[in-house]
C-alpha cells in the first residue's frame, strides 16, 4: 500500500482552496496542517468539492489537524501534548504506523537550548509510545522551528536524526552505555538551491525564509521536516520528497523566489510517499 503525505504550516490562515488544490495535484492520502484556521467543516467542503474522498480525524488537541482518505477507524488518537499529536494509523492490510505530528515553539519565544529540551521530551514520548505499540514503524513530521543540524534534532537524547540512510540503517548507537535509536532525516538533502528545476517547479533553498540584520543569517531554513525510523527506511522514497512551490495555478513564491506569505504562507509545504507500507 502506498501513502502520500502532505504537511503544511499555513501561518494562521485558512487557505482551504490552496490546500485542496495541493491534495488533488499530489493525490494526497494524509494531510497534516498546523496553524490552520480553516474550520474543519469548511476544509472538508473544499477537499470534497468533487467527491467525498477526505475525512477529518478529530483529536482533542486541534493544534495539528489531520485529514485523510483512509477509513475513519484507521486513525486512532494515542497522545496529545502542547507540541505534538501521536496517532496510530491502521492499514487495511499489514502493520500499522505511529504517526507523530509536531509543531515546536518558535525561536521568537524560545532559546535554542530550550527548544532542544522540548525535543528531548517529545523523543521520550516517542519511545514510550513505540514501547506500547510494540514496534518502531514511526514517522515524525511537522514544523520543528529548528534546522536539521540543531542539537534537538541531532542529539542522541533528542530525535537523534541523522543525515544518511546508511547511518540510520544501523538502527541505534550506544551513547554512554545506553542504546539510542536513530531517525533518518532526509531534509538534510533539501538545503540549498537546486540549479535544476524540481519535479514541481523551482526547488527552493529551504521551507522557510527569514532575513534579519544580525551578523549571522542563514536566510533559508528547513524547519519543516519528516523523520523516518530505520524500520520504515525501505518504505520511504527519497525521490518522492519535495518542497512544494505551487498549488494548482498559484505560486507559493514571490518574484524573488521566497515564500509568499501574503498569498499563502511563510512556510512551504512538503510532500512525501511511503511505499509498501504495512509489509514486514
Amino acid at each position: 500500500m502506498m501513502l502520500k503525505f502532505l504537511f503544511w504550516n499555513t501561518k494562521r490562515r485558512p487557505l482551504e482552496n490552496l490546500v485542496a488544490d495541493l491534495c488533488r495535484t499530489h493525490e494526497i492520502d494524509l494531510l497534516l496542517l498546523v496553524e490552520n484556521t480553516a474550520p474543519p467543516a469548511r476544509m472538508l467542503l473544499s477537499l470534497n468539492k468533487k467527491s467525498a474522498d477526505y475525512r477529518y480525524h478529530h483529536s482533542p488537541s486541534e493544534k495539528t489537524k489531520l485529514y485523510s482518505r483512509l477509513p475513519r477507524n484507521s486513525v486512532i488518537n494515542m497522545r496529545d501534548t502542547l507540541d505534538s499529536s501521536f496517532r496510530r494509523v491502521q492499514l487495511l492490510v499489514g502493520n500499522d504506523l505511529l504517526l507523530v505530528a509536531v509543531h515546536l515553539p518558535s525561536k521568537l519565544y524560545m532559546a535554542p537550548a530550550d527548544q532542544s529540551q522540548i525535543c528531548t521530551r517529545i523523543a521520550r514520548h516517542v519511545r514510550e509510545e513505540e514501547l506500547k505499540a510494540g514496534h518502531m514503524r514511526t514517522i515524525v513530521v511537522g514544523d520543528f522551528n529548528m534546522n536539521p543540524f540543531e542539537d534537538g534534532l541531532v542529539s542522541s537524547e533528542g530525535f537523534h536524526a541523522v543525515m544518511t540512510r546508511a547511518l540510520a540503517a544501523k538502527g541505534a548507537r550506544s551513547v554512554r552505555q545506553d542504546d539510542r535509536p536513530f531517525f533518518y532525516n532526509p531534509m538534510w538533502n533539501r538545503f540549498g538551491e537546486s540549479l535544476t528545476r524540481g519535479l514541481y517547479g523551482h526547488r527552493p533553498a529551504g521551507t522557510y525564509y527569514y532575513a534579519d540584520s544580525k551578523p549571522v543569517s542563514l536566510f533559508w531554513h528547513v524547519f519543516d521536516q519528516v523523520l523516518i525510523r530505520p524500520d520504515l527506511l525501505n518504505c520511504f522514497d527519497d525521490q518522492s520528497l519535495h518542497i512544494v512551490t505551487s498549488a494548482g495555478d498559484t505560486s507559493l513564491l514571490k518574484a524573488d523566489q521566497t515564500p509568499n506569505s501574503r498569498a499563502a504562507s511563510d512556510h512551504l509545504p512538503i510532500v512525501f510517499t511511503l511505499n509498501n507500507v504495512g509489509r514486514d
Partner: peptide, 16 residues
C-alpha cells in the same frame, strides 16, 4: 451545526 462551525476560527491564535 457542523456548517455553523465554519464561521468560527478565523482569528484563532496559536501558541508558537
Amino acid at each position: 451545526q457542523s456548517k455553523a462551525t465554519m464561521r468560527r476560527g478565523q482569528d484563532e491564535s496559536f501558541p508558537r
